[in-house]
Design a protein around this nucleic acid. Structure first.
Lengths: 143, 143
DNA sequence: TATTGTTATACTCTATAACTATA
DNA sequence: TATAGTTATAGAGTATAACAATA
């Protein structure tokens, strides 16, 4: 196997695993009336209180798109806005208790959905896989 | 590290790598005026000539959604429809030459975008990674 | 009767452009 | 002037329900 081939095979496997994981996340989101994007918003807010622009940058979206996403999630009581005390232009976004509760439930569901497949690997293989993926990952931003 | 922890860490790494790959695919799609879904449609049609319902099933979408996606891609000349000769109800979908050309260009761009990151792994590590991902993957459906 | 596909409808997601308020 | 956020607008993506054509 040449180096080229090993790269092609890896890209193929990685893209396939991407669509497979995405499909699980999309399904669990849909079962809870959440788009994949809203799922990610909740995931980011788990341990952050970003302003709208930061949230948009995290997701690679325009700030106007972000406004709409925050609007709809806020209307559902999942998150809330607050003026940033240090910058009158900025608006901080954070989970409400209901949003936090839903996020935790989603975590459990995601874990439950992926566990059977990932359980095909022995624990030491899982650790090996994590070790191989880690150097590929950018700065943290799970879920 | 307990077995629970190794599973959590793996899910975290896998989800993060999923969003990272998705972001690359979304960007390359957008640069070519294609949504991630349209990108996937083209990828599926590379080596298949499915009917509308099969395509929808592949993507986990409703057939009415699929009708719209095929409509728009057809209007752009990327794919075409043909009545299935064996079943008068069915409509087969396939790439046009222009669609095939675009798909090949996208392949190159995706490869070029992912190569630098994946190049951080040595060839034997890449093979190891493929070997660990493969048992997790369902039946083929790359891109 | 059941299946395949399209259409009508409604809502979410998305970006661009124009705007207001603050820095 | 530049930045943060919202709103208006337009188009794509999505599902549900109703429909026509075929099996």
């Amino acid at each position: 196997m040449t180096s080229e081939d090993s790269l092609d095979a890896l890209i193929d496997a990685l893209v396939r695993s991407t669509f497979q994981v995405t499909s699980v996340l999309t399904r669990i989101g849909a079962e809870n009336d959440l788009s994949l994007t809203q799922l990610r918003v909740l995931g980011i807010l788990r341990d952050r209180r970003p302003r709208v622009t930061e949230l948009a940058a995290h997701l690679g979206l325009d700030k106007s798109t972000m406004s709409g996403l925050v609007d709809r999630a806020e209307r559902r009581g999942l998150l809330a806005r607050d003026r940033n005390p240090h910058d009158g232009r900025a608006v901080d976004v954070f989970l409400t208790p209901a949003g936090r509760e839903l996020t935790q439930r989603l975590d459990v569901e995601i874990r439950r959905a992926l566990a059977p497949t990932l359980g095909r690997l022995r624990p030491e293989q899982r650790e090996q896989l994590v070790g191989l993926l880690e150097p590929l990952l950018g700065p943290a931003d799970a879920d």
